[in-house]
């Protein structure tokens, strides 16, 4: 097809999407141009074919089936928000409780170890040595040093 033929305007022309002036120009062109007139015929046939489409009716009982699925959805939508609500509160509470219990347990364990270490009771044994810097010192010495330090501070 030569340039100057309003090929891109033929569908809008047939579909009534052009302004009055544009439609007039296309109409005049087609009246004088057999190639475009034939093209308009094909465009009309295409649009006519589409226009003859019969709308499809939705299958029967569409709502009944959808409603059943909505009921199932409803059960889920009631159930899950509750689970989420409870989880949001329960999980942080459980974490907090675990942390508190763990810290209490470690604190208790730590204190009893220091006590037994300094006094030589419990799990610690008298005469045992500990490393202070690079030197091995007996626990009794550590204890005595601590007592002397306390006494010096109180003076």
């Amino acid at each position: 097809m030569q340039t100057g033929h309003p090929i891109d305007l033929l569908f809008p022309y047939v579909c009534g999407e052009l302004s009055k002036d544009e439609a007039q120009r296309v109409s005049e062109h087609c009246a004088a141009c057999p190639a475009c007139a034939r093209e308009v015929d094909l465009v009309r046939a295409t649009q006519r074919l589409l226009a003859r489409r019969v709308p499809v009716a939705p299958p029967p009982f569409f709502w009944t089936r959808l409603s059943a699925r909505l009921d199932a959805e409803g059960v889920r939508s009631v159930f899950w928000p509750e689970v989420i609500w409870v989880s949001k509160r329960l999980i942080p509470a459980l974490i907090a409780a675990t942390l508190i219990l763990t810290s209490l347990f470690w604190q208790d364990e730590g204190t009893s170890n220091i006590e037994s270490y300094l006094t030589g009771n419990g799990t610690g044994k008298a005469g045992e040595q500990v490393l202070v810097g690079n030197q091995a010192i007996s626990k009794e010495t550590v204890f005595q040093t601590a007592v002397l330090d306390d006494a010096a501070r109180s003076d």
Binding site: P58, P59, F62, R65, L66, R69, L70
Partner: peptide, 14 residues
């Protein structure tokens, strides 16, 4: 079409 339409309306409902 029936399956897709059901999914469409379920999605809309949600």
């Amino acid at each position: 079409a029936d399956d897709i339409a059901q999914e469409v309306f379920l999605k809309v409902y949600r």
